[in-house]
Simulated assay, not measured.
Amino acid sequence: MCAHRQPGPDDPTADAMAGKTRFDDIYDQPDPRSYFRRLAPYDYEIPHHAQAVFRRTLAARRAAPPGPGLTVLDLCCSYGLNAALLNHDLTLADLYAHYAGDGTTDLTTSELIDLDKEFYAARRRPDAVRLVGVDTAAHATAYALAVGLLDEAYAENLERVPPSHGLARAMAGVGLITVTGGIGYVTHRTFDALLDAARLPLWVSAFVLRTVPYDRISQSLTEHGLRTTTDAGRLYPQRLFTGPDEQRDAVERVRAAGDDTTGLESAGRYYTRLYESRPRAV
C-alpha cells in the first residue's frame, strides 16, 4: 500500500478512492508492526498473490537485455513488503506472524531493526535483485532501507514534484516497475516522471483495484512506447471490506465500469486486476 496522496481534480482517478477506508495512521510509522496488526483482520493478501507474479516477470525481464544486472523499482513500497517477498524465502503469512505476533511486541524500533537485519539476511535468496523503493512515507521507507530490504529509498511525491537527482540517477538502471497497492493514490503523473527518467527498456507490472480506472496510466505508458495487456478473466483478491459502506461504494464503482461483482465484491472483498506493460517489440 501507499501513503495517501490526492490526485488533481482533472484526473479520472480523482474520486476513485473516496469511498475506500483510509488507514493513514499505519502507513508511516517507524516500523511495520501497526501496519500488519491493523490489516490482519481484513485479510490483506495481495502481496501474497503478487509474489509469484513478480518473480516470474522478473525472470522474464532478466532474460531480455540488459540481462541480470537490472534494478527493480517498487512504487508505493511502504515498509518494503514486496521487496521482502521478492528477494527472500518468506511468505506473507511469515511476515504476519513476525510483526503481528507476540515475539516482536515488546521490542523498541531500534531493537526490531537489529533483529530484522538478521531476520532478512538469513533468508536472502541467491537470485535477489537490486531494489529501489519510492513512497511518500519517509519513516516507512527509512525502515525498509535500514533493515536491508531496499538498496535505495526515496520518500518523494512525484504527483507534485519531479524526481530528485538521486532518484533520476537510480532510474537509469531500472528495468521493471512493480506496484500492488498504489494505483489511485498515484496517477499517470508519477509514471510519466519515472518513465521520462528511464534509460533501459522498461516493464511495468501493476495490480489495480477494479474500482480504479487504469486507462489514463495505460495511455501514458503507450506514449512511452509500452503496450499494456490484462487477462480480464483473472482476478486477485486484495482484502475484506471494512464495512457495508465501503462494500457498497466498491460494488457501485465496479458495476459502473461494466463488470460483474457476483461472488466477488458482492461477496465482501476488494479484487484487483493485473496489468502488464512491456515495450511493443517484446
Rank of each mutant, 00 (worst) to 15 (best):
Y185C: 04
D114H: 10
L115C: 03
H49C: 02
V129N: 02
H98L: 10
H48D: 14
R239A: 01
I26M: 03
R124S: 07
T104R: 14
W203Q: 14
S205T: 12
Y42V: 04
D151I: 08
N82I: 11
D259W: 13
D11I: 02
L195V: 07
W203N: 11
T136P: 04
S205F: 01
P7T: 06
P12N: 08
E246D: 09
N157L: 06
D106M: 03
R269I: 00
S78P: 03
H88Y: 14
D114P: 02
G148S: 14
Y44K: 04
I177T: 12
G103C: 04
W203V: 10
R255K: 11
T262A: 15
S164Q: 11
H224T: 07
Q29W: 05
S218L: 03
A138Q: 08
V204P: 00
R248Q: 13
A172K: 15
T105V: 01
V208W: 01
P9D: 08
A16S: 15
G225C: 10
A155C: 03
V186H: 03
C76I: 00
L158H: 02
A121H: 13
N87M: 09
Q219W: 12
V204L: 11
L240A: 13
R33A: 01
L70W: 07
V208Q: 03
R22A: 10
K117A: 02
R278I: 05
V147T: 13
A142E: 14
R210L: 14
P32F: 00
L274D: 02
G103Q: 12
T272N: 12
P65M: 08
R169N: 08
H224G: 02
A153D: 09
A64M: 15
L209K: 09
P66W: 12
P12R: 07
Y275W: 08
A64K: 14
Q219N: 11
F54A: 00
T272P: 00
D28H: 07
D192H: 14
E111N: 06
A100N: 06
D114C: 01
G148T: 13
R216M: 01
F241Q: 00
A100K: 04
G166A: 12
R62V: 04
H48T: 03
T91R: 08
A60V: 05
G182R: 04
R227I: 09
G225F: 09
G173I: 01
C76Q: 06
T261F: 01
P201D: 13
A250G: 07
E45A: 07
A100R: 07
K117Y: 04
R189A: 06
Y79Q: 05
E223G: 12
Y27Q: 02
A100D: 12
L235V: 10
T272C: 11
D192L: 08
W203P: 00
P30H: 07
T57E: 15
L86K: 03
L150Q: 14
Y99M: 10
V179T: 15
E152C: 08
R123Q: 12
Y185Q: 09
R189C: 01
R160E: 15
Q6S: 05
D260E: 13
H48M: 08
A59E: 15
G133L: 06
D11N: 11
D196G: 13
H139E: 15
L81E: 14
N87E: 10
V179Y: 05
E252K: 11
R216P: 00
Y35R: 04
H165P: 01
T242F: 02
